[in-house]
């Protein structure tokens, strides 16, 4: 994988995630927005080598952890997303051999599963931390946190259909080895 391409695309996607995602926010069901960065991480996890995937997921998760939090705090909790993305990437690494990587539905489904894994680990970590540090930014309760993340995972899976398709268009620039099957649904 070309890290320069990763840096440029990640930068663009993170900017979109932190600014333009409001366009896609569904206010009627808890103001959820799709996690475009997770779509990108899933895309990378489908094609890149194992170690590269884990590093890329960690970097993207770290960026999400360092993004402005929903609650006013004078610190950023690093870990729930950084570790969650690595866990999600690891899951996709194990599943990618069983799927058609260049299908839009694959990207959508794996994005959902990726974020489901992130939700499980992040909720666990936040709950564990909240147990002894009440200032942990947990969305109400562990169940509330997981439910919110589950909704985001579902919505991101849907959003990954067009966004994943866009990413698939760029696959030639990434320098991935393998996964050269034809694009499609």
């Amino acid at each position: 994988m070309r890290w320069s391409v990763f840096a440029i695309v990640s930068f663009i996607v993170i900017v979109l995630q932190l600014s333009v995602r409001e366009v896609l926010t569904l206010h009627s069901i808890g103001a959820i927005s799709p996690d475009l960065v997770a779509c990108l991480a899933t895309f990378i996890a489908l094609f890149a080598p194992r170690t590269t995937v884990l590093w890329a997921c960690w970097l993207l998760g770290l960026a999400m952890d360092l993004a402005p939090a929903a609650r006013s705090m004078n610190w950023h909790l690093v870990g729930p997303n950084a570790l969650g993305y690595v866990f999600g990437g690891y899951l996709v690494l194990h599943m990618r051999a069983m799927v058609f990587r260049r299908r839009m539905l694959t990207t959508a489904l794996l994005t959902f599963l990726f974020l489901l894994a992130v939700a499980v680990l992040a909720t666990f970590l936040l709950t564990l931390r909240h147990w002894y540090l009440p200032d942990t930014p947990l969305h109400g309760s562990p169940l509330g946190e997981f439910w919110l993340r589950l909704k985001i995972a579902l919505y991101s899976g849907v959003a990954a259909l067009p966004f994943g398709w866009l990413l698939q268009l760029t696959v030639a620039f990434w320098g991935f080895t393998g996964g050269a099957s034809r694009r499609g649904w």
Partner: peptide
């Protein structure tokens, strides 16, 4: 290290402000 940071109290996470 990330896990350790994740479990650390808020006052120990000052360095994250710089990164953010």
């Amino acid at each position: 290290l990330t896990l350790a940071l994740c479990m650390a109290p808020g006052r120990a996470l000052g360095v994250t402000n710089l990164l953010a």
